[in-house]
Every structure is written in C-alpha cells, then in structure tokens.
Design a binder for these strands. Sequence first.
DNA 1: CGCGGCGTTGATCTCTGTCAATACTTGTGG
DNA 2: CCACAAGTATTGACAGAGATCAACGCCGCG
Lengths: 231, 231
Amino acid sequence: MNNDDLEIVCATSLFARLQRDAANKILGWSSPKAFEKGTVLFTQGSPANSFYVVLEGWVKVYRTSSAGQETVVAVFHRGETFAEASIFLGGSYPASAETVTAARLVRIGGDVLRRAIREDPEIAFSMLASTSAHLKALIEQIEQIKRLNAKQRLADFLINLSGDRKGVSTLSLPFEKALIANRLGMKPESLSRAFLQLRPHGVAVERDRVHIHDIGQLIALVETTDDDLGE
Amino acid sequence: MNNDDLEIVCATSLFARLQRDAANKILGWSSPKAFEKGTVLFTQGSPANSFYVVLEGWVKVYRTSSAGQETVVAVFHRGETFAEASIFLGGSYPASAETVTAARLVRIGGDVLRRAIREDPEIAFSMLASTSAHLKALIEQIEQIKRLNAKQRLADFLINLSGDRKGVSTLSLPFEKALIANRLGMKPESLSRAFLQLRPHGVAVERDRVHIHDIGQLIALVETTDDDLGE
DNA sequence: CGCGGCGTTGATCTCTGTCAATACTTGTGG
DNA sequence: CCACAAGTATTGACAGAGATCAACGCCGCG
C-alpha cells in the first residue's frame, strides 16, 4: 500500500485514533484492489466475513425486496469504511453493496479485525466510534426522509456535497441521477422536478454539473418548516 | 436489583453473552429507577454520559427540528438497551429520549462501560453486536419508509407487535396513536385511515384494542409490491 | 357539568408516483 | 462518417396517496 492510500485509510474514523502499529496489525495482509463500475461486493444474506475501506470511487449499499426492488440505504466514498458493523451481527450481511463508479477498495477480513481487538482493546473503541457514527448518520437520514419534502431533501444532499464550502459552489454530481433519486427516496422524475424547483433558489444544472449561487439559501430552505407560524 | 430485573437485563443483546461477573462489573453501581410518563431522559445535543436498559414501559427516541417539530426515530421497551452507541460518539446525544408510559429503567454511566471494556475486551464484542443490531434495525426502517405505503407500514408495525404469534392475535396498542403515527412516518389522520384500510384484511380496532384475524394476511400485504408484473 | 386531550371523519389540496413520449449521449458497426 | 441502438435524463398528462384544515365525537377529570 502506498503512502497516499495509507493516508486515506488513517483518516477514517475507524483508523484515525489508532497507533501506527495497531493500524498495521489490521492492514497487514490487505492490499488495495481496483473494481470496475457495477461490481457486486457482497449480497444481502451472504456470510458477513469482511468490511471495506474506500480509497477511490463510490459504493452503494442497498436492500432488495422480494420483488427485486432496490432501496439504497447509503453511498460511501473516499475515506469511509462500510460493513464493519456487519462483522459483529454474527451471520450475514443485512444489505448488498455494489460499486457505482470504478473504485479502489481495501478489503479486510473480519477474523483479522476480531483478532486485533483481542490483542489491543483500544481498537474496540475505534470500532465503536465508527459504528456509532454510522448509526448517527442513519438516524439523520430517517429524520430527513420523514420531515423533508423532495425539494428539501435534494437541497440537503447538495449542501452535504458542497462540504464546507460557503456561498457560491460549482460541483459535479458524483454518480447517476437515478441513484441520487433512490438514495433520496424518490423517483428520477421527481428528482428532475426537484432540480427545477431549486432554480429560483439559485441552483443551475447542466448534465452532471451543478452550480449553486448561494449555499446559505439552500440551508434556509431545509430549515424552513413551511408552517412557520405555529408549532 | 431483584432477580426478575436481572433476568431482563441479561436477556438484552448487550448482556446476553457476558459472564455473570462481567455483567456485575457493569451493573455494579446501578439500580433500577421508576420514571413517570413524559419524563425527558436526555436531550439532543446534551453531553452523552449514560445509556439505559428498559425494564418496563416504553421510551421514545426522537429528533427535534429547529422549528420544534418532533421526528420519532425509535421506540424501545422491555429488554432493550438504548443510547449505548452515543457514549462513543465522543460528545453529545444525537437525539432526545422521553418516557411515553410510566417506566422503570437502569441507567449506566459511560465511564463504567468504558472501564469494563478495558478490563474485559469480550464486553467490547457484546457492545459491537448490540450497536450493530441497532444499525440493522435502522437500515430496515429506512427501507420500510422508502418502499412501503402507509397501509403497509402499519401492517408491518402490527406484525412486529404480534411477535411470534401466528394466525389470530389480539393485542393492545402500547402507546398513543399519535406516537405510532410519528414512528411510522405519517400523520395521525393517515393512521386512522390506514386502520380503516386494514379492515378488509381482518384487522378490527376498538380504542387501543386491536384484533387481528390472520397475521399471515398482513404479511402477504407487506410483501406485495402492487407492481407484481415487471421489475 | 363543562373542559381538554385524543381520535375520527370529511372536504380539499398538494405532492409524488405512474405512464408515455421525447431528447440527448454514447458506443457500435457498416 | 453516419445510422442505429441502448442507456440516461427530461417533460407532460394524469391519478393516487397522504397532508392539511376544520368539525365533531368520545372519554376522563376537575
């Protein structure tokens, strides 16, 4: 593993607080691997024996209904780990994962992780911090779906994509709009219309390029309850 | 703590696999406490220093928007632990918690838990299993909200309330309908109408008593995709 | 008895899903 | 180089689900 990769791994919430030798204990036998777009990493119900670190690209985690309908639960990218909680569910993955762009990932065996925790209990705290952070993210997603409408959910998505940029921001959508729509709990048609609704709020879209005139305006949009009278 | 209480605690996924002395290490200085309905246990943003075990009653965990709107994320009852993940977020609770019935709870300090993990790393695995289980539950809730309509979500709720009973089942709703509605991501009016829609499927409601004629019928309802043609 | 909280019901409106038609983009092969 | 097909995104018309607003019924409680 080269230095750039190592830097990314050590920036994840799982590895951030670990000593270098503790990190090596986990990473020891793992090396980054490239996957092409559309590679299924694991499927819902299959034995959960590994978790992943994303070095590059995007990975969707989704559940499939009995009728074959996909529901995207999360989308991970550079500097994030996923499926590390599944290791401890004692059995099978509760969801499937697939690369949605070309991607480079590190795959780490659950047995390696378990052994590392036994040898160095401090690793357990990092694991707990990491899964707790995922838990918090899911809680926030649930609140988002329940409380916001399509337009607001898209605004929220764009805000997060902008990271810590303020004011004007131009960015390119990291993956297909159909996936964005699914992640936001709506249909592609609704996403198109949500983009149109954001135009008056300073959002211009051209293909996968999005120009945001003022992020503060989007933030205001999300915090507005449209019933700003009572409550 | 009396024997009945201890039995409940030891049945939680967090304590289930622990040796008796490991459990005592954690429970040592904690004793059950009674709370009346409507007691706020902690609020979103306040320092996260404890987690809880429910011995009796029901507790809602919810987030509050800037406009004061509440979104229920989970409702916990006998034999469940909650907020144990918050301990490891390093900072504050990401949600609030309030008893929605009279309740008896055990409150356990985060410092106690942390010390116990350092002394006995096996506890870490139980913690990880427990938070992972919560994570899985949230993933399933997200899928439920995104994929099912109001009628199906209510059916799913009733199925879970019925536990492992099959066929006919009579039960009483454990808390107010407004809370059920919120938990299911709908308005109270919609919940009323969802109950009406379930009548043809063998569900009779009278006040807080629900009589289910055939649970299998409800299960079929949830698995139906109403677009059972293509996909 | 009257009040207040909770739940239901009805009328209406808004949002989102559905279905269908139409670009636009990209890749392929003649 | 162009024709064509397949995948992706947009747009329009329409229908249905759920929200909203308002009124009312029910029940417990002072």
